[in-house]
Design a protein around this nucleic acid. Sequence first.
DNA 1: ATTACTGCAAAAGATTTGCACTAGG
DNA 2: CCTAGTGCAAATCTTTTGCAGTAAT
Lengths: 143, 143
Amino acid sequence: MIAEDIFQQTFRKIGLRLTKQRKAIFEYLLNNHTHPTAQEIFSNLHPMYPELSLATVYNTLEVLVENSLIQNLGSAFDESVHYDADQSPHINLICTLCHKISDYPTESINQLTMQIRSTLGFRVSGARIVYYGKCRTCLKNNI
Amino acid sequence: MIAEDIFQQTFRKIGLRLTKQRKAIFEYLLNNHTHPTAQEIFSNLHPMYPELSLATVYNTLEVLVENSLIQNLGSAFDESVHYDADQSPHINLICTLCHKISDYPTESINQLTMQIRSTLGFRVSGARIVYYGKCRTCLKNNI
DNA sequence: ATTACTGCAAAAGATTTGCACTAGG
DNA sequence: CCTAGTGCAAATCTTTTGCAGTAAT
């Protein structure tokens, strides 16, 4: 299968074995842009992979981050670390009424990132930019 | 004392009793821009206030955040939540090597905020902007 | 065949909680 | 006084770790 080859190549390139678990976790992050925590990933995959353990989820996430295949978004609002396969810095908008998280890609961030790099000599490896407030839909519906 | 009155007023306004502990913790955050964790605050205040407990530090920080007197900055990739009394919008730069958090105030944020407001119709009530990577000092020292 | 990876269960840390006691208003 | 706030210790929750067994190459 072609899809298998892509995973194989990606993992082989960085000297990692392609296990069912790693494939499942990485695939999950590629297909879901919900910024899940380790626990959420585990809960979602467990029905399909009953043999998967939470410790493996943590191990795998660490390995994927180390090899820059995914991003660690840190824990901004709850006490858990969130992960994302989307590597480009983008804005998360959290609506405090409907609790939906939406993404907002914009050029401004690249400018800001470059500014930080050049002005401060800080080597940026990631960013979490979260705005919270009330989304257009909730405002319109006067919730 | 005048200074006492300011604390009294601030706390009374939001219906909180001014205890020695709360005053000490809030004062500590106002005077130190080191973005400390609960543990760090406790360790620093304990010699002067031997009766202070870690649980009270956690309680107090929660109360102060709820009443918007301080900010919860999330973790600095070191498994602990950091706090800051600086309420003005600014960027936090977290070094993943030394775990220090530094501030970077810039006009760009106001532009970004306005852009989100006008383009998306999102009514912004707050923001947390965190960049992480390697700081100049750690890069220089080749840690 | 090797040995990197996994699952499990126990450990380690950070934070929260229940409750009797204390002190601020 | 009255009750919000505190200290303590136990509980909880997230993440890490040690080790024997399993599976990828």
